[in-house]
């Protein structure tokens, strides 16, 4: 049971794509999967000590208030809360991509340490992900 592994390359910075990152992470961690999350691209702006405001895709913008109300109604935690819950329950590691961090002028101390475990290169991530499932989100 403990030998299963799921890894995610999280590129998107829009909240509609980050919600499933939280859901999958929490469930996988509870079930005993090892979870590795490699944050890159615009998603880096969401794991900072001062994270970016919620961003939604333009084509669904009109539906966002209804979705937010629905999320509140079903008491869904934020995707970050779900990742943190996953960390409490199991083996969840979150890494920031060093290349994109450099390109954006972000240093390790800019990232929220309650989410991001380390800033690493892609080689480290590929080695950790080897042999398991990988999702690109």
């Amino acid at each position: 049971m403990g030998s299963e592994k799921i890894s995610m390359i999280v590129f998107s910075g829009t909240d509609d794509r980050l919600i499933p990152v939280g859901v999958i992470t929490q469930a996988a961690a509870a079930l005993g999967y090892e979870v590795n999350i490699f944050i890159t691209g615009w998603a880096l702006t969401k794991v900072l000590r001062k994270p970016a405001q919620p961003v939604w895709p333009k084509e669904f913008e009109q539906m966002v208030p209804a979705l937010q109300q629905g999320m509140a109604r079903i008491k869904a935690p934020s995707w970050v809360e779900m990742v943190k819950q996953g960390k409490e329950l199991g083996k969840v590691k979150v890494y920031a991509c060093s290349m994109m961090a450099e390109a954006m002028g972000l240093k390790k101390e800019d990232f929220d340490p309650s989410i991001v475990d380390d800033v690493v290169g892609v080689t480290t991530f590929l080695e950790m992900a080897k042999g398991g499932q990988v999702l690109f989100i």
Partner: peptide, 14 residues
């Protein structure tokens, strides 16, 4: 009751 997926399974596992 009243909590969304994956909350119920998480609570069961806890």
């Amino acid at each position: 009751r009243g909590i969304a997926c994956p909350g119920p399974i998480t609570e069961l596992i806890k």
